[in-house]
Design a protein around this nucleic acid. Structure first.
Lengths: 224, 224, 224, 224
DNA sequence: TATGAATGAGACTTCATTCAT
DNA sequence: GATGAATGAAGTCTCATTCAT
């Protein structure tokens, strides 16, 4: 959100414009996302991507100058999709706010929104390979931090916006940290949950909501 | 010449006994931990480890049959050091309990213990490269999950023990999930904090304590 | 970088179709045959093959997934060439039979055929590096028996056919053993002869014919 | 036979004299023979030899300057044992000659001697690992031809002696070639037989005798 | 533009041999 | 002399990237 799509040049060698090219470009990213998510960055080979995307290695390199840029494109795709999902969440929230005043709901609106946010992350994680790809390859190392960073920053930006609405009294820097906490906790618990049995994974998601609510409740209350 | 048949792989090929060997063995693990933490498993090369450890590639392979085993050794080292650190935490806690009844402390004992636990993790993370190495290489992919898994399981075990003391009413399965939440949240926030500025990193640790307290407080209260 | 997972090994990785590729593929086999024959399987290195074949190690591995397969290809080439040579022998024999009845020949036809067969083997051995390569690497050891086995079996099959014509009374199992004797004796004497001086080598070939005739004569006579 | 034991210096680093050393030296050769025979020269490692011989790699190198010399020693051992076996054959033969004149035996003496010679080779092959070791590693390649050569030459010498007795009319150079034929055929058939089923292997040995008799018979007859 | 063959740096691993204790 | 730790050259194989067609 509020983040330009692509600024540095030479990242994408040939910006696809023709319909066929666009399709091919999209397919590469789809395939790459799946493979990065499934096998990791290192174990995913350019040849493999090309093969599964039913393209040639040569064409692959016509779209992307190197492997890293493929990953970056996947991350970008992830940001787009996430932004979209969050945008929907926002708009729904606004509707709720106007249409449905917090009457006799036994749950405060902000709490429901946490659930919604977790739900959005969860759905992204479950359905958007690029999301898994990026999260599964969060690495601090040298280079490809960049791409993940971008994605996480974008999440943080969104969440900061939400917090601002619920807890406007929270000073800006604090708000930033809280947003980071929320995003990191949520994404990492999602990732970690895939390493557990389905039952435990489900319970972890439930606990995640509990945790986030308890964490945020005082901040929201203060705000009132 | 070259390779041939045979590869029994006795896990640790030569168990170091002489002082010099032990030093070398330890140094390899130290160096490997640092490099795995810094650059990741894949980007760390055996040749690199040997060079930094000021030994030869041949010696390296006399201690470890392959790179995976080096990592496993690092993970083992990490588990040992962690267990040690937690053992100290436990023993201190017991002293506290007996020596110093919760007199005029404006903080309940369990809360202080959370701080202590976070402190332990934090210290491990800051001072024990093997800890960073393992955490930074948590991967879902096929093979090298093993080592991390072992470590995280061991943490979860420890924390479950603590929770049992604070919130004995919490049913066992729930307790397990809560322990996972605590461990995952703590470790991942620690890792994530290294990607931020020092100030934000510090604030994140503070918020982590806040979050964990707020999360656990109701469980502890229920228990009373 | 380095190696990772994955090693499907499709035996022949890239089946050469274009003229240039075919040339390269053929050259690799030629060179490999020469080197295997000259230095043996173990002492022949992939890098060496690539260098002499004036290609890169990478290209070599695009054709063959490993050294064993290079050898297998050499063996296959050898079988082909041998089959071809024997086919010619057979067809000539048939012509002889029809065109030229054993009129005033002072040598029985089967004896001439032995000479011809030895001649074929001899020519193969002298001119077909793949033949030498395979024979020189007949080994009992575990793995690379396979390729030689195949070749020797194919020879035995051919020879069994010849014997059947000369000595149809010889029971089938005996015939098999006799064929093995002929093939082994002939090939091994050929190989052994290269370790002697040219004169002795020549004499060995002469003696080989003598030996084979004397050995077979009674079987053929019985058959009449 | 008639071949000095060891001439070139520096082949054996330390000639063992003390009883313990001799035992160790012998054991190394035994073990090496077994391993060369079983796995081949290349696949047999110095460390492996040392381990199985219950010695240290250091001691191994005190007896032999390098792997090749170990093989050479095995070959030498083989020659010794073979010479011994043939010496027995000779002496028996002489006894036969004097004690038992070729009276009503339905088999000429020379034919029985062929059987005996084959029997000697066969027993060596079955019971003397060094024999198998050398035969299984007959290679033309560069270096280690030497050792096998020596052994085969020594066999040829012995057999030439026998032929001289049976067929004294055969001119010397011819005799040499015939001896080579006999030795090569016998040894190679023995080796080849191990690649077949036991039944076929047995039949091959029978056929070998048939072949050698038929081959030699005319030479012997001529001689009379 | 699309293709895929070609390249070669570089990773892992083995093992003959040396050398310090 | 005996031991076995240390060494490093050399070999196999992978895969990102280039380039000719």
């Amino acid at each position: 959100m509020g983040r330009s799509k692509r600024s540095k040049s030479a990242k994408v060698r040939r910006k696809p414009v023709q319909a066929r090219s666009v399709r091919r470009y999209e397919k590469i990213i789809d395939v790459a996302a799946l493979m990065f998510a499934e096998h990791g960055f290192e174990a995913t080979t350019m040849e493999g991507i090309a093969a599964v995307a039913e393209t040639s290695i040569g064409s692959l390199y016509q779209f992307f100058p190197n492997k890293r840029e493929v990953f970056r494109a996947v991350a970008e795709r992830c940001i787009e999709r996430s932004a979209q999902a969050f945008a929907e969440l926002f708009s729904e929230a606004e509707e709720d706010e106007t249409v449905d005043p917090p009457a006799g709901a036994d749950e405060p609106q902000w709490a429901r929104m946490i659930d919604d946010a977790v739900e959005v992350f969860s759905r992204l994680h479950g359905q958007e390979p690029s999301f898994q790809a990026v999260l599964a390859n969060v690495q601090l190392y040298e280079d490809y931090a960049e791409a993940d960073e971008a994605m996480l920053r974008s999440f943080v930006g969104v969440i900061e916006g939400l917090i601002e609405r619920w807890a406007p009294a929270l000073p800006r820097p604090r708000r930033h940290v809280v947003a980071i906490m929320l995003v990191q906790t949520t994404t990492m618990i999602l990732v970690a949950s895939t390493r557990e049995t389905p039952e435990i994974a489900r319970d972890m998601l439930l606990e995640l909501r509990v945790m986030l609510r308890r964490y945020l409740a005082p901040y929201v209350r203060e705000a009132m």
